[in-house]
Design a protein around this nucleic acid. Sequence first.
DNA 1: CCGTATCCGATCCGATACTG
DNA 2: CAGTATCGGATCGGATACGG
Lengths: 135, 135
Amino acid sequence: MKIRDDYTCPLEIVHDIIKGKWKTIILYQMKDGPKGLSELEREIEGINQKMLLEQLRELIEFGLVEKRSYDGYPLRVEYSVTERRGRKMLEAIDIMQMVGVDFMLEKGMTEALLAKGILTPEQLEEILNERKSDS
Amino acid sequence: MKIRDDYTCPLEIVHDIIKGKWKTIILYQMKDGPKGLSELEREIEGINQKMLLEQLRELIEFGLVEKRSYDGYPLRVEYSVTERRGRKMLEAIDIMQMVGVDFMLEKGMTEALLAKGILTPEQLEEILNERKSDS
DNA sequence: CCGTATCCGATCCGATACTG
DNA sequence: CAGTATCGGATCGGATACGG
């Protein structure tokens, strides 16, 4: 991943950090606590190990993710979101998730959202109510 | 810009929308009201017209930006953030901006932030205070 | 001032094979 | 289970020229 070494504005650097195809999804997947590598690989549909490691390395480099290794057998490695910067970024990702849901609802993908448990029926109803009052 | 036509999770589609090098910056630049094309081109350092138009078209396609044309001479066209989805996305971008500032401070780019007016001295002090209490 | 088309090097990312 | 190396096609994005 090519990273600029010169910035005009803060959003440029953030873009460099999260432009990778899987970065936001990886972070989102770690929101409820540390995860092992194979765990992430299993949970993120479509990713492969090379991509996962590559993007994790960059997330670490930019202070959004921490890595902890535990010796022994089997080897155990844990990746987790960093307290300040990682958590802050997750706030943004949460909102992006909402925008994505909004988009999928517009596209009539309601069933998929419910089936995957991304949305509970209660949340769905709440969102639809909000949208009505927007016009 | 290649856009997936099949999604597993909401973040995938959002990533497709904002992965372009300039998308977040363009949106951020429109946060205080409608902008004309040449206005945006002037304000966004390093962008060219082709990129600007290309990325605007996609932002429109995904309901984050609206376009209004006014006939007459000279031609006037206004681009603005959409009420629901665009504004929501801007909330996320605001947070990303903060993460970027955090990063730049860590890199010792304090002067640049002040010089460009991205941060007032008061805001800077506030941020530094918060960081101290983090450990 | 606004918008489109083309060309081409840079980069991303998926597959695959291999190590501790 | 965790991690590295390489290769090649698909995309991206900058320059540049042209049209309304």
